[in-house]
Design a protein around this nucleic acid. Sequence first.
DNA 1: TTGTATGCGTTATCAG
DNA 2: CTGATAACGCATACAA
Lengths: 340, 340
Amino acid sequence: MTTITQVAKRAGVSTKTVSRVMSNYPHISSKTRLKVEEAIQELTFAPVSVARHLRLTEPLSIGMLYGDPSSGYQARLNHAVLKACSDARRYLAVELFDEAGTDWVRQVEMFLDRTHVRKMILVPPLCDSTEVHQLLDDRGVSYVLISPSRAVLGSVAITMDDRLASKEITEHLLALGHRRIGHISGHPDHVVTLLRRQGFEEAMARAGLANPAHMFVESGRFQFRESLVSAEKLLSAPRLPTAIFAANDEMASAVVMAANRQGLRVPDDLSVAGFDDSPIASAMWPDLTTVSQPFEAIGRSAIETLADTSGGPGGASQMIVLPHRLIMRASTGPARTDLS
Amino acid sequence: MTTITQVAKRAGVSTKTVSRVMSNYPHISSKTRLKVEEAIQELTFAPVSVARHLRLTEPLSIGMLYGDPSSGYQARLNHAVLKACSDARRYLAVELFDEAGTDWVRQVEMFLDRTHVRKMILVPPLCDSTEVHQLLDDRGVSYVLISPSRAVLGSVAITMDDRLASKEITEHLLALGHRRIGHISGHPDHVVTLLRRQGFEEAMARAGLANPAHMFVESGRFQFRESLVSAEKLLSAPRLPTAIFAANDEMASAVVMAANRQGLRVPDDLSVAGFDDSPIASAMWPDLTTVSQPFEAIGRSAIETLADTSGGPGGASQMIVLPHRLIMRASTGPARTDLS
DNA sequence: TTGTATGCGTTATCAG
DNA sequence: CTGATAACGCATACAA
C-alpha cells in the first residue's frame, strides 16, 4: 500500500505538497509538480478515499437508498447513477432500505450517520416523503429528487415529461393513419398513470377523436396479466381498434400476445406501442415501438446538480425535465385502409 | 453529529468501551453494557463508517466490480449481495468497470487502492480473468468467484448446478407424459449453454429417448429473436414436439409466441419451460415453468465466505453449489394423449 | 511557493 | 473487565 508519505519522501517534498498536487492546487512550481507526479506514477499512488472523507469538508460521496429490488426501473437508474459517479470521480454509497418498515426517517438518519454523506439522491418512493425532506433540510444535507410525484419547494427535481411523451407516441400512431386507438393505462396509484393517459387523450382530442367511437381506455395496472384481460376486452369489441398504446412495455407485450391469440398480426392488423424501453421491448418480436426514458441523462444531471450545490439546501426550486426519445420499431405500422 | 466521545462521556466510560459495545465484544459487564447502550440510544449514535475503516485491521467493506449494465442477472445479483451485506452489517463498495477496456487488472488495482477493500466478489466475466486472480493473490486480497467458467485452484467458487437443474426440468416434462421434446440452447460461448444442454440430453437418454425421433435441439443464442426462428423450425416439423425446454426465459417466451402464431395453445398443445425465473417468466401468460437461480443464497454465501476468511487467500479450493428451485407454473401440462 | 503540526472519529495496543 | 494513548492516511491552519 502506497501512502502519501511515501510519495512525499520519494519526491523529496512534504505530504502537504503531494496533497496539493492531488487536488490541483494552482500555486505550485511546475518543477515540484513534475517531481511529485513522477513519484505518484512510480509508486502507483491512489489516495485512500476513506481517509480523505474523514478529513474533507466537502465529501466526495453521494448517498442513495432504494427499496424495490425487483424493479427494472431501479436497476437501470442505479447503473446510470453509478456511471455518472464514475465519470465525475465521485463515490456512491448505496444501500437498501426497508420500504415496508415504517420508520423511513430513522433509516435515512442512520444511513447519514454511518456514511457521512451530505448529498443524497432520492428516488421513488423515498423522494415523496415530506418527513425525509424535513430531516435532510434540518441536517443541511442537499438532495435531488428523481421523478417525484410532485415538486417540492426549495429543491431540485429531475424528471421527464411523461405527458408529452405519451402525446407524441399517440401522434405517431395518428400519423400512421390510425383512427380507432386503445389505451391501456397503469396502476391508479402511480402519478405517471394519469400523465400518460392525459397525453394520450390530449392527442386524441386534438385529432377530434376523443369520443367513444374512436378512443378506448382500459386499466392494466402496469401488469402483464391485467393487461392481457384488458387487451382481450378491447379486441373483442364490435369495432376493433387498429392500434393500442399501453402505458408500459410489459403491458404492451401482453397486447401482442392477446392479438396473436385472436389471430391478429402485429403490426399488420394491429399496431402496438409501449412505454419505458425496458429490456422486454427489444427482446420480443415484433420489437416494440416505445419511449426511452433518459436514464443516463438523469443520472448525470443528478450528480452534476449535487456537485454544484456549493451551499446547503434551501436553494431555489427547480424542475429539470430531460428529453425522452421515441423509439420506432416493428410493432407499429400504417393502418390498414380496408379497415379504417 | 454524535461521536463516540460524547457517548463515552454520557455513559461515564472510555471510548474504547463504547467501541467494544458497538462491536459486540463478549467480555464486558452487563451493567456497563447497559449504561452504554442507553447512552447510544439517547444520543442516537451511529459510528461513522469511514473512520472505522481507517483504523480497522479487518475491513468491513467488500468490493464488487461489474460491467454489463443491461444484464438482469447482474441486477438481481447486486440486490442479493447488497441484502446480504446489510444483514451481515458489512458495506459494499460497488463500482462499474469498463468491460471493453483491456486493462482489467489496472482497473481492479485502482479500485483496490481507492476503496481499501481487501475482500472482493468476482462476478462474470471478471471471475474468469487469471490476471486478476494473480493481482489479488499478490496483494493478499481474498475473493470469491460467482459462477466462474471453471474452478480456480486455491479459491472459493459459488455456483449452482445448471446441468442437474436442466435434467430435472426435463424429467418433469417426461413425467407429464411428454415424449417428443425440443431444446433451444443458449449462446455457444457461455459455459452454461453446454451444461444445460447436457442436462437435457442426459434426462432424455435415461428415458431412452435420445434419438432424432424424440429429441430435437436448436440454438437460440439466449436471444428472443433467434429463439423465435428456432421455435418456428421445431414447430413446422412433420411430427411436432409436445414440449420445448428453452435454456432461458427470454427464449421460452419466444417459444410461446411462436406457438400462438401457429395456433397452438400453451400448455394444451405445447408445454414450454424456461430457465432463470427472470421477471418475464411471471409477467407473461401462461407464466413459465422455470428454474429459479438461488440469488439470495449466492449473495449470502459470498458474504459469509468472505467474512470467515480469517487469513488471506491461498486456502483450499472449494466449490459451493447452491440448490436451485424448480418453479412449476402454467406453461407446462400433461401431454395430450391423442398426439403422443 | 513550501513545510510543520494538528486533528478528523475510530479502533489497536498494552497496561492496569 | 476497563482505560489511556497512539495510530490509521490524509487535509488544513498556520508559519516560514
